[in-house]
């Protein structure tokens, strides 16, 4: 069984902790950047993929440079903070940028994958619909659109309109 998924590398970073300055998650769609402040005071930031297939869990600085450039474009004060820690994780990038929550043709095998670099905010809904799918052995209305078969039928979700070049973000 082949999945329409490629594995890519995403980096994120945190700044040194500072006193509360930001009480929301802010995303910058046009610049592809997100930021929030943790309860510890660290600014948690991220954005683009490194842009090539990878399982390495280690990224390169120019990608973070680009991400932080967008960050400073939105919030210039970030310039004076210091980057404390960076890390790289591997992302299951689906070919239309949306997840797959579905049962499969193999009995007892269910899919919940292709979350790309998003998904954290959707975790409760994804868990709930996935549990429903497993318990009832059929998909719930809410995850019917997230079928694996959509890549055959053309009922794609592709909210960003980027197509199959998963590495372009």
């Amino acid at each position: 069984m082949t999945l329409p998924i490629e594995t890519h590398l995403l980096q994120a970073c945190v700044s040194e902790p500072v006193k509360p300055v930001l009480d929301n998650v802010v995303t910058f769609g046009a610049g592809h950047f997100y930021i929030s402040q943790s309860d510890k005071g660290e600014m948690v930031m991220g954005g683009d993929l490194d842009g090539y297939n990878s399982y390495a869990q280690r990224g390169n600085l120019p990608t973070l440079q680009h991400v932080l450039t967008e960050g400073i474009a939105m919030m210039p004060f970030l310039s004076k903070l210091k980057m404390l820690r960076t890390w790289g994780g591997i992302m299951d990038m689906s070919m239309d940028g949306s997840p797959i929550i579905d049962k499969t043709h193999i009995e007892g095998l269910y899919l919940n994958c292709g979350w790309c670099y998003g998904g954290f905010k959707a975790t409760p809904a994804s868990g709930w619909t996935f549990a429903h799918t497993i318990a009832q052995d059929r998909v719930h209305d809410l995850n019917a659109g997230y079928s694996l078969n959509r890549f055959n039928t053309g009922h794609l979700l592709d909210e960003k309109g980027l197509g199959t070049k998963t590495w372009i973000s």
């Binding site: 700044s15 040194e16 600085l61 973070l64 440079q65 932080l68 450039t69 960050g71 400073i72 474009a73 210039p76 970030l78 310039s79 004076k80 903070l81 210091k82 980057m83 404390l84 820690r85 960076t86 890390w87």
Partner: peptide, 17 residues
Amino acid sequence: RPPYSPISIGAIVGREV
């Protein structure tokens, strides 16, 4: 993981501001 010690975000971004 990098950095060895905290690095100013301004330095990482450079002139592209």
